[in-house]
């Protein structure tokens, strides 16, 4: 039983290190900032996720003292990764993208980084008209 647990934990740790490295490697390999954004948000988060699961299993099975902190960290990282990616993308759009270079929104308003949001009252009326 412990032997199989050791194999599983080792596999998870190796996978975690591998994905964390791939994410960071993509950061230097890919040629353009929006492409680079893909590597850390996905690969690195999964890398840390599997390391954390491995640690939980290790303390539960091998050490016999369950530890739940990792669950909090995993949840926190998985919830914050999209927000970080969104903010970095917005910073990039604001810094060095022209609004004309982006695809149109398909509505009468532009993208939120360049265009002011419509007045709250107007938005309420629009929603009422739907």
């Amino acid at each position: 039983m412990t032997f199989f647990a050791e194999i599983l934990i080792s596999l998870l740790i190796v996978a975690g290190g591998f994905f964390a490295f791939v994410g960071s490697f993509g950061l230097i390999k890919l040629p353009e900032i929006m492409q680079r954004l893909h590597a850390p948000t996905k690969a690195t988060t999964l890398g840390v996720g599997s390391v954390l699961v491995a640690s939980m299993l290790y303390f539960l099975i091998i050490e016999g003292s369950p530890s739940i902190h990792e669950l909090v960290i995993t949840l926190f990282l998985f919830l914050t990764a999209p927000i970080t990616a969104n903010f970095v993308a917005k910073a990039h759009l604001h810094e060095d993208q022209h609004p004309e270079a982006l695809p149109p929104t398909g509505g009468e308003h532009g993208w939120a980084t360049f265009d002011a949001p419509p007045d709250q009252r107007v938005a309420g009326q629009e929603r009422g008209a739907d």
């Binding site: 975690g16 964390a20 994410g23 680079r36 890398g47 954390l52 970080t84 910073a91 810094e95």
Partner: peptide, 20 residues
């Protein structure tokens, strides 16, 4: 944006290092 992204990835990797 590149530098911010690199710093953020560094933080995530450091967390993995601490756990290991």
């Amino acid at each position: 944006a590149d530098r911010i992204l690199a710093l953020d990835t560094m933080v995530i990797n450091s967390i993995a290092l601490i756990i290991l």
